[in-house]
Design a protein around this nucleic acid. Structure first.
Lengths: 346, 346
DNA sequence: GGCCCTTGTCGAACCGGTAACCCATCGTTA
DNA sequence: TAACGATGGGTTACCGGTTCGACAAGGGCC
């Protein structure tokens, strides 16, 4: 193994000079710098991570805690994870993968041992158990998702409220008067996943503003549950012509069921999905969808942790941030003006 | 921060004794051991990761390099990544997430710096560039996927050959005489992704053995490409009654297209998917599918790296392993005996 | 009773960087 | 011209564990 001392010897300088040349924390003359650089490439030197962490009190690692349960859209999660990893590298950081089953102890473990300088938590619940640990230890952290009380924390999230509102607006604009919101399975709402509730809330509020009648129905995302949900919706409100689907698993079944029931999309019924673009493109017809830029989420979260890490290291009080990333409505082939009423009702 | 020395003082012993009590590398009397344990919990001691890595020459971290391109099924990848993480924890190891865009340099970086003790590579190509680095540095590694020359390496993979063969067998058993294999986009084959080629090979060989006529057609997985692929298949072999789909994106479109073309599944055409169970369950009808246990893959890969890490540390020559995990054929609703020929041909 | 082996503990030398502190040189300013 | 700041480099004390060698105490054996 090649050490700093080896490089120093090879370059004819002292170890500290090499260290400073590497970190840039002091000015080094052109000549010595190039001599050092040559020595480094000549010897193929790679600074020892453990020694660097020990002496520098920074591991240059952030931990990313990902959810285990599959209710969240996995590719989306993965995309965020990748974005986090890439963004972290740009700060000279690496990413440690933690699973949610380690829970608060996992956060405690990596933070207390100095394994990670900071933590990014995904799939944050309103009453998340990991948050107290962050406070207790003063762990630099960024949350992707919002807890009930974000005081003293940095958070990023999709702006789900706006996502819901965009859906309501789009359908209202197209003249739909009776619309249905097909949400996640009731377990998700029971877990108090903030995003699910906020989407419905945004949809509900805007729908009311626009004078659109709506139903909100949970749905597990299997074929059967979707069939059941749709049947109940049409039983309760036969004139429903607009559908918003947040549960990705329900999209395919819904389209099939509508078709099977003699309703053509988008002529007889409009469908908006709240899902990644890749998914929206896969269906036939291609779906009008509301999407959030996942890459941005990951990058922002990294920026937030990095800011907190340096703040804590420099003795500053890290400042809280709460960023909501605006979603985009992409109009495709699955939405159209509401059909004229053919059924007359009492 | 609580250090080993603090614990030692609190327990009235020397630092080395605490270290030995923790590592178990020397016998410690019952009494002192319990005193030390009490001190540890009393002070809430967590060994410093950097110091441990530096002194012990082990970071207790393995790197996992995941692919970036989306041709592979992302949830499957994620499931493997999670399995790796969980399995690693059972060995007292953590997982560092690397993305494939770092390429060979990434492997070099984490290995040479001692950041990671070993590496698990996913999405291995036949002529993977990262393999030479492993050899050059003697990096303990496990590959998920097979390179062209696995000599000196530990590898796990799905037994794709058997997967292909299982499909051919199942269709042959049901009496299908003309079958089609709908594969991945041609880019995948061009990248020499071993798994794609091996699946086709296994299918081809078994089909020939069983006297089944077959076609192999690449498919990008979009709606259009699937339509095109299906049209060509039916043009070339109108009597085709069995379909094997490896590209998950093509499954939904294929089912819709068959239905639209007046072919009922499974009465007129049987469909087997090579995909995760979760996906097979989502379609209607539920798909007969060939699946590999992803969890096992991750666990085995971890076992392999761990074995190599300890081997290298103890000065042994690590022994190569090549494990193929057998897939399961799960019969569901999308396959049935071949229909009697109704079209007579010249 | 002397000898040796086992068991339990301690002291101290690392592991490979970091950064505070010190020193020399040189150009600038009063 | 003396004082001074800026620049470039060396010395060295850590950072918090691990592990080797030393050693004392106790037991078994001849």
């Amino acid at each position: 193994m090649v050490t700093l001392a080896d490089v120093a010897r090879h370059a004819g300088v002292s170890a500290s000079t090499v260290s400073y040349a590497l970190s840039g924390k002091r000015s080094i003359s052109r000549k010595t710098r190039t001599r050092i650089e040559q020595a480094i490439t000549a010897l193929d030197y790679h600074p020892n991570a453990g020694a660097r962490a020990l002496a520098g009190k920074r591991s240059h690692i952030i931990a990313l805690m990902v959810p285990l349960h599959t209710e969240v859209h996995v590719p989306t999660m993965m995309e965020i994870a990748i974005a986090v990893t890439v963004a972290a590298r740009e700060h000279g950081y690496d990413v440690l993968l933690l699973t949610n089953d380690e829970g608060p102890d996992g956060v405690q473990r990596v933070a207390a041992s100095g394994l990670a300088d900071g933590v990014i938590l995904m799939d944050v619940r309103l009453d998340d158990e990991r948050v107290p640990v962050l406070h207790a230890r003063g762990v630099p952290a960024a949350l992707i998702g919002l807890p009930a009380d974000p005081a003293g924390l940095s958070c990023v999230d999709h702006d789900f409220t706006t996502a819901g509102a965009l859906c309501a607006d789009h359908l209202a604009d197209l003249g739909h008067r009776d619309v249905a919101f097909i949400g996640y399975g009731s377990a998700v709402y029971r877990r108090h996943a903030g995003y699910a509730e906020r989407t419905v809330q945004g949809f509900r509020d805007r729908a009311e503003q626009r004078g659109v009648r709506f139903l909100h129905r949970p749905c597990e995302g299997t074929y059967e549950s979707t069939a059941g949900t749709l049947a109940r919706i049409l039983a309760d409100r036969p004139d429903t012509t607009g559908f918003v689907v947040q549960n990705e698993g329900a999209i395919g079944p819904l389209l099939n069921l509508l078709r099977a029931g003699g309703r053509t999309v988008p002529e007889d019924a409009s469908v908006i999905a709240i899902c990644p673009d890749a998914l929206a493109e896969q269906h036939s017809p291609r779906l009008t969808a509301v999407t959030s830029p996942k890459k941005e989420l990951g990058q922002l979260a990294v920026d937030q942790v990095m800011a907190r890490i340096t703040a804590v290291a420099d003795g500053f009080e890290p400042k809280d941030e709460l960023l909501l990333v605006a979603p985009d409505l992409m109009v495709r082939e699955s939405t159209a003006p509401a059909p004229h009423r053919t059924t007359s009702r009492p």
